[in-house]
Structures are given as C-alpha cells and as structure tokens.
Simulated assay, not measured.
Amino acid sequence: MRFWSPCSRAALVCSLLLGLQGPALADPAALRERHEALRDALRGSPFGRPLHLESRQMGESLQGDVYAVLDHSFEKVRDALAQPANWCDVMILPFNTKYCHAVQADGGPALMVRIGRRYDQPVEHAFRLQFDHRLVAASPRYFECRLSAQEGPVGTRDYRIVVSAIPLDGGRTFLHLGYAYGFGTMGRIAMHAYLATAGADKVGFTRVNNGAGGHGLIGGMRGAVERNAMRYYLAIDTFLDSLDAPPAQRAERRIQGWFDATERYPLQLREMDRRTYVSMKRMEVERQQTLLP
C-alpha cells in the first residue's frame, strides 16, 4: 500500500505555527480552522489513522508538518509535553538519537541531545545539539511548545520542532507537529552524498509525478524531512500511550511501541530489525538518566 498526502497551494499557505522565516504567534483559532479544513482528509487518510502529512522546500530550508487526531485527552497531551524531561523520552526513540538529557541552560530549560550519523555510532562521536525548550501556551483550550537548536550535524542549522494542540470532542486531541531545519553548502553536499549512496532508495510519503507519465513517492531532501517528521510524531504518540502503563514498564513500552508504529510504514521507516533496535534503545534509555560531560 502506498501512502501520500497531496500538498496544495492553500495547504502551504495554511502551514501554521512553524514559519520557516521566523516563529509564528500562537494561534488556536488558526489551528481550529486547519482541523476543519482537513476534516475529510483525516477521515479518509491512507495512513490507517487520522493523519495528514505535508512537506516543502524553500531555498535552503526544509519543513515537514504532521496533523493528526490523537486518542488522548487534551489535558494529558498538554501536561505531558509541557515538561522538558518528558521530551527526552520522546526524542530518544528515533533510531539515530543516541542521547538526551534535560538541563537548565542560559536561564531556561534545554535538552542536551546527541545525534549519530549512523545508528551504531558511539555516543562520544555523535553530534551534540542543544535544543532550547520554550513553553508558549498551556491553557485549557490550547497548547504550544517549541524546541529550537541553532546548529545541527553535517552543515545543517536552525532546527525547529513545534507542537501545538487543541481539544476535540470525545476526549481526543488535534495535534500539529512541525519539523524544520536549514542547510548551507556543506549541508547540501552531505545530503546529496547520502542520497546518492545509503539513501538512494529512500522515499517519503507524498505521491508526486515521476515525469514519465506515472506517479511515485517523493525522494530526495523532501522525502528525508517527511521521514523525520513522521518519526517524531510517532515518538510523541508512543510516549503518550506509555503513560497508561505502570511507571516501571513505560520505557519498555515506548521502545517496543515505537518500533511497532514504524513497522506500519516499512518502505519509508524501516532501518533495522527489532532485536537490534530494542537492544540499542534499552542501553540508550538507561544512559540518558546520567548527565554526560
């Protein structure tokens, strides 16, 4: 089965709360309008769940947006994602995150993260990022949280992860995840090298015209940003699921649950077998409890 979500001009204009040129103002009314505009797309989503994904490239910036209806109450989403330490339980789940620890930096909360070029890269050789954590809104009717990092691996920069949410009827939540970053010459060269070798067969979720009278799934840099946006969305949903388990069982539930969730889209997201992933993440979850130098 192929998965895609066509991205119209109107949808691009309405990509809310994560402008590539600068942070947008918190706007719960705009998110409600987005939910209404996507109602039919969410109901008929090819993802097997009420989810819509978009991506775009503008010059030296890439952005992926996931909109989804969660089977979690708004209060649960808001209270859990307002806590910086909980974000490390989210961030550690994607395969190439080697470490995450919440700290106080420059007068505010931050996440010290290490990203590996390869899933098996030793943590001491992984790239260090500092994501500043900013809680924009946590009211009874609207939530917004932003993570930002000035520098990333292999020539990338200006990383932004924005999560916003509003309550829906029936104890559900409409959530928007925006994931974006910029790149310069070095980043472009590194990405093209990856896409010509290990990433040559990697695709995203959006269906596009392949130029030969047919259609295929998008590849290249937009395919990469779509895969990462989906990984982070699945990490958030899996983390929220794990909160229903006893505390001692939550880490294992997150690890197993994230792998299960990514296996629903193996063409895009499969990187390794379950045994390799689970063994690696058990070690990394244990390691993140300690602040590394």
Rank of each mutant, 00 (worst) to 15 (best):
M186I: 15
G155F: 02
T173H: 03
H125K: 15
G171P: 05
A126T: 07
R157P: 00
D158Y: 01
Y179D: 13
F131L: 14
G184E: 11
N96R: 07
R141D: 14
D132L: 07
V203C: 14
M91I: 10
R146Q: 13
V90I: 11
F183C: 01
K202R: 15
L168M: 09
G187A: 09
G187R: 04
L177A: 07
F174A: 02
F95W: 15
K202V: 04
G108P: 02
P153V: 08
F174H: 04
V113S: 01
V103T: 11
Y181H: 14
D158G: 05
D120P: 09
H101C: 04
A165V: 02
A198F: 12
V203L: 10
Y179A: 02
F183Q: 03
P167D: 05
G184Q: 08
A102Y: 00
G199K: 00
V123H: 02
G184V: 05
D106T: 02
D106Q: 15
A196N: 06
P153N: 06
A193F: 03
A149H: 07
V163E: 07
F143Y: 14
I189P: 00
Y142A: 03
Y99S: 01
H101Q: 05
G152Q: 05
T185R: 14
F127L: 04
Y181F: 15
A102D: 00
L175W: 01
D106A: 13
Q104I: 11
E151S: 15
R188H: 07
V203P: 10
S139C: 04
H125W: 11
L93V: 02
S148Q: 13
G178E: 08
G152R: 01
Y159A: 09
V154R: 12
M191H: 06
A149N: 11
H176F: 04
R118W: 11
G116F: 07
A105Y: 08
G155W: 05
R114A: 10
Q150E: 14
L129Q: 10
R134V: 12
T156N: 11
P122N: 12
I189V: 13
V90P: 02
A196V: 04
P109W: 03
D106Y: 07
R160M: 08
N96L: 10
R146I: 02
V123K: 01
H133M: 04
C145Y: 09
E151N: 12
M112A: 15
R117H: 12
H176E: 11
A190D: 04
E144R: 15
D106M: 07
A137H: 10
A165S: 10
T185Q: 12
D89F: 08
A190P: 11
I161G: 06
C88Y: 09
G184I: 06
V123S: 02
Y159D: 05
R188C: 09
D201P: 00
K202M: 13
V203K: 13
K98Q: 13
I115H: 10
L135V: 09
C100E: 03
T156I: 10
G155E: 06
R128K: 14
H125M: 13
H101M: 04
V162I: 13
A137E: 14
D201Y: 08
A193C: 10
A138D: 14
F174N: 01
R118Q: 14
L175P: 00
R128M: 08
A137C: 12
R134D: 15
G108D: 09
F95R: 05
P94C: 06
P167H: 10
L168C: 06
V90M: 00
F95K: 00
